[in-house]
Write a protein that binds this DNA or RNA. Structure first.
Lengths: 276, 276
DNA sequence: AGACCTTACGGCCGGCGTAACAATA
DNA sequence: TATTGTTACGCCGGCCGTAAGGTCT
């Protein structure tokens, strides 16, 4: 029976031209390759090389065999990769979310419900999330609205309300509520990883400049050491506590309060059943 | 490294359902398969089966792996077959001919010019011969006319003239030449393997019945022991000698004399160069 | 002399079979 | 009890490396 290690040696010989080079690359001695190629010819029952005194060259049979060899070896490699990938996928739950706070809650719940699974999330816009859910990239997603679709299962997943975090000396800091337009034009600190929440300030406060901080630590430091207003949400405060030295004023615009929905495919429900 | 014998075992297990059955088919002991499957799982780094106490079933990973295994094994089998076929083809010259006599001459010449090659011929009609030449089925063909085509090489390959072989008492036996219509209506003995020569008598002697003999011995016996006229050619007589107890009268119709041409593809000339 | 291929000899790793055990129907 | 899968032990074939030899540039 021909074996893969022989095909590997054949392919290496074809690739490097001489037995010596191939042996070096394969970390084998060169006589080993001589014997292997002889054995290969015997097993094919056909000459694969032109045997000269001190030169071994592929003939047409050998070329064809080597061509097949690399194809077979590639397929073997693919098999290993795909099976491992399939296994990894079966031990992994991938979530996509529109915002970080429900993502964290989902992560916690999933880690608890499926202690043997690896869990990951990533933030995308809503259309990308739905597409990813339907093509199998995500087992579940978090949307800021109730989804439609016969193929979908969904469950309410909490609400979140945006608020201003104002320095105590800010003229509006003692209000019980504010509309976004009331701060339009003021420059604000903004944390980068807030998902779909980017849309609302950009839309309702077109005259403001947003100083986006992608580093969490830098963001909180700047909030404490500057008088620039920033944002916070009720849900974030439940996780991290209220920002220090700030007055939190809820935003009254209706779009500033969203209800989250965890969504999965009906046909994929079994993989995340404990979360629904 | 995963090896083909392991994939063979995996495929057999998948095919037969239990290790015992697979072991029986593979002529191996059953513990061998237990160990092989364990080793396979270790090499994949992934579980391929559901392990019950006395039951071993494929899981999804295993199904995928087995699927790939059969594909790889098939490809390996194909490789062996194709390389062997290519080798066989490179040691074989296949000729197609329109008639047996030039075929024999070609065979003799080829066997002498290429003593290490296997040589074969078969008779077909002219269109089939040209098609077979162009698709690689034949390395050379014999046609009864000069071929046309930019892709072709040709060489004259002798002539052959048809004659009547008449019993001495036949009323026309002492003639120096005859036209075919002069014997139209007489029943004649005809050897089966005469290639394109079948066409001429059927066309020129529509009122004759031809007693076709496919066995060479039966044909020559009947020629000697009957008074039925038969055919012979000058070229055949050079090979086999004249028919016993017969008067040979050449046929004067111009179609009864043909010139043969050995034909090959220009791109295939190197394989039959010594014949051209 | 250096590069390459081949042959000869011996070690050793790994696949295999036998035997014994465990679990299920 | 019959069938199936697992574990333990030892054999042995075959792959490999080292050493030595031959050929060509």
């Amino acid at each position: 029976m021909i074996e893969l290690f022989q095909l590997e040696q054949l392919a290496a010989f074809r690739k490097h031209g001489t037995l010596s080079k191939a042996a070096e690359v394969l970390h084998l001695s060169q006589p080993t390759l001589t014997r292997s190629m002889q054995k290969l010819e015997a097993e094919f029952g056909v000459s694969l090389f032109r045997h000269a005194k001190n030169k071994l060259e592929f003939n047409e049979n050998g070329e064809l065999a080597a061509e097949y060899a690399v194809r077979i070896l590639n397929q073997t490699r693919d098999m290993l990769e795909l099976v491992r990938a399939k296994d990894r996928a079966s031990h992994t739950l991938s979530f996509g979310t529109c915002a970080p706070v429900p993502a964290l809650i989902l992560l916690q719940n999933a880690a608890q419900a499926y202690p043997n699974m690896a869990v990951s999330t990533e933030s995308k816009d809503n259309e990308t999330l739905l597409a990813g859910l339907r093509n199998g990239e995500y087992q579940a997603i978090i949307l800021p609205y109730q989804p439609e679709g016969q193929d979908l299962c969904w469950k309410e997943y909490g609400t979140e309300t945006l608020a201003f975090a104002l320095p105590p000396g800010h003229p509006l800091a003692n209000r019980d509520g504010l509309y976004m337009r009331e701060l339009d034009g003021e420059n604000m600190l903004l944390y980068a990883d807030i998902g779909f929440w980017h849309e609302l300030p950009a839309q309702k406060m077109p005259h403001s400049r947003f100083l986006v901080q992608s580093d969490r630590f830098a963001f909180t430091e700047l909030v404490q050491s500057s008088v620039l207003p920033s944002f916070v949400t009720d849900a974030a405060m439940r996780l991290y506590g209220p920002p220090e030295n700030r007055k939190v004023v809820p935003i009254l615009d209706p779009e500033a309060t969203v209800a989250y929905y965890a969504v999965c495919l009906k046909q994929g429900l079994h993989r995340v059943k404990r979360l629904f």
